[in-house]
Design a protein around this nucleic acid. Sequence first.
DNA 1: AGTTTTGCTATTAAAATTGTAGCATATGAT
DNA 2: ATCATATGCTACAATTTTAATAGCAAAACT
Lengths: 115, 115
Amino acid sequence: MIIPKPGLPVRGSKTGQPIMALLDLLGRSWAMGIVWHLYKGPSTFRELQDYCESISPTTLNTRLGELNKCHLVERCLEGYVLTEYGRELFELLEPMGSWARHRWAKSFEENDRKK
Amino acid sequence: MIIPKPGLPVRGSKTGQPIMALLDLLGRSWAMGIVWHLYKGPSTFRELQDYCESISPTTLNTRLGELNKCHLVERCLEGYVLTEYGRELFELLEPMGSWARHRWAKSFEENDRKK
DNA sequence: AGTTTTGCTATTAAAATTGTAGCATATGAT
DNA sequence: ATCATATGCTACAATTTTAATAGCAAAACT
C-alpha cells in the first residue's frame, strides 16, 4: 500500500495536501487505534496484537511500517513507541475520546428512541 | 459493513467503547474526508464524488449511509449536510489540518534529508 | 540444552473498494 | 408535450485490503 506523504498524490488529493495525506494514513484500519494505545507507553508487537483484539499480524506489521515511515512511531528497546510527532497527534485525537463518550454515545440513546 | 455503535462490539473493542466505535467508523475509507468536505456546506452526491477524487459511488453511498446512521450526516434539499454532531466532530478534526501542514509536513523535509 | 517468548513472514480466504455501465426520477429547455 | 441533461443511486466484475492461521528464526529464560 502506498505510503501517504504530504506533497505526493494520495487518496483524496492529487496534489497531496497534508491533511489529505494524514487522513489517508489514519483512515486505514487500526492506524488510529495503534496511536491511541501507544500513547500509554511503549508496547511490544504482541501487546499491540492483544490490545487490538482482532488485528492480524500482517496488518499490524504493515500499519506499524507505515506509521514509522510517516514519523509517528519508532522502535525502541521495549518495542514500539510514539515519536514526538506521534504524541502531538495523539493529543489532537484525544478530545475525540471524551466527545465520543459524553456527546456522541448519547445521540444513540436519543435518536434510536425516536425511530 | 457493520455500523459501529457505542456499546456494541466493534473492531478494537468487544464492549464497544465509544472511542473505539468512533475510530472504527472514521477509520473507513473516505469517512473523514466526507466529514471534512461537508463542513464547507451541503453537497450533492455528485459534488462529493468530484471532491473525493477517486471514491466509487458504491463506497460513497455506503459511507454516507453509515455516517447517517451514526448521526453525523443527514439529507437536505441541497443533498447532504453535517448534523450538529457532525459539525462538532469536524471541529475536533480541524486542528489536525493545521498540524498536518505546519508540523507534520515539515517532518518529511527534515527526516528524509537525514536518510 | 531445551523451552518460551517475540517479531514477523507466508499463504490462503474473506471482505472492502474500485471502475464502469447504466437506470429511474427529476429538472430544464424547446 | 418532448427531448435532453443532471442527479442519486444500483449492479456487477475486477482489484486491493484485511483477516486467519500456521509457523519460523532469533533472542531471552530456565
